[in-house]
Amino acid sequence: MPIAIFKKPGVVLPLVLLLIFAVLLPTAHVRKPHWQWIGYVTPSPDGRTLTAKLMFGEPKADGTFCEQVTDMEVRESASQVAIGIQVLNTCAPLVSWGRTTTTDIGYPFDVNLHLRAPLTGRTVVDKETGQPIEIAQPSDRS
C-alpha cells in the first residue's frame, strides 16, 4: 500500500527534491554575524572611549558598506578590558554552499566602544580569544 503513492503523477519529483534538500541543508553556510578581528584600538584623551579600526570590503556605490556592526561587547575588570564587535555581511548570500570571497583591499571603518572607567593601564583583550589587542596612541595611527 505505501508504494502506491509513488504511482500517482506529480508525487515522485517533489519527494526527490525534498530528499535532496534534506541531504544538502546541513552542508550549507547560512549568513550570520561573526565576531570581527580587531587589530588595534586607540583610546580617547580621557581614556573612556576606545576606537577600533576595522577593515571592511569596498563600499557600495552609495558609500555604505556591506558589513554592518550588529553588536558590541565591553567587559571591564580592574586589570583588563575585553572587547568584541560583531559584524554581518549583508551582501553575502543568505545561504551558500561555498565560501564568500572578499577583496584583499581593506577600507577602514571606526567603531567607538565606551568604557565605564578610564583605561588607565589596563590591557585590552579580544573577548573571544583572550588575545591582547594593541593599544595605539592617537599620534601612532592615522
Score class of each variant (00 low, 15 high):
I3W: 06
I3E: 10
I3V: 08
A4P: 10
I5F: 11
F6Q: 07
F6G: 15
K8N: 14
K8T: 15
P9L: 10
V11G: 06
V12P: 01
L13D: 00
P14Q: 13
P14D: 12
L15M: 13
V16R: 04
L17R: 05
L17T: 08
L19P: 02
F21S: 15
F21V: 15
F21Y: 09
L24I: 09
L25Y: 11
L25Q: 11
P26E: 06
P26G: 09
P26L: 01
A28E: 04
H29G: 10
H29K: 14
H29M: 06
V30S: 15
V30I: 11
V30H: 13
R31M: 01
R31I: 00
R31C: 01
R31G: 05
W35R: 01
Q36P: 05
I38A: 05
I38S: 07
I38H: 10
G39M: 14
Y40G: 01
Y40C: 08
V41E: 06
T42S: 15
P43K: 00
P43V: 01
D46T: 12
D46V: 12
G47Y: 00
R48K: 12
R48D: 05
R48V: 04
L50T: 09
T51P: 00
A52H: 09
P59S: 10
A61V: 15
G63F: 04
G63N: 08
T70E: 08
D71P: 04
E73Y: 07
E73K: 11
V74H: 08
V74I: 15
E76C: 06
E76D: 10
A78N: 06
S79Y: 00
A82K: 01
G84A: 09
I85L: 02
Q86C: 07
Q86T: 03
Q86L: 06
V87F: 04
V87T: 06
N89F: 03
N89G: 06
N89R: 03
T90W: 08
C91M: 10
A92P: 00
V95S: 13
W97Y: 14
G98M: 01
T100C: 05
T103R: 10
D104G: 05
D104S: 04
I105M: 06
Y107D: 02
F109W: 10
V111N: 03
N112R: 13
L113C: 08
L115M: 09
R116I: 06
A117C: 09
A117Q: 09
P118D: 05
L119S: 01
T120E: 11
T120V: 02
T123H: 12
V124P: 12
E128R: 10
E128S: 12
G130Q: 00
I133N: 07
I135M: 05
A136H: 15
A136F: 13
S142Y: 13
S142F: 14
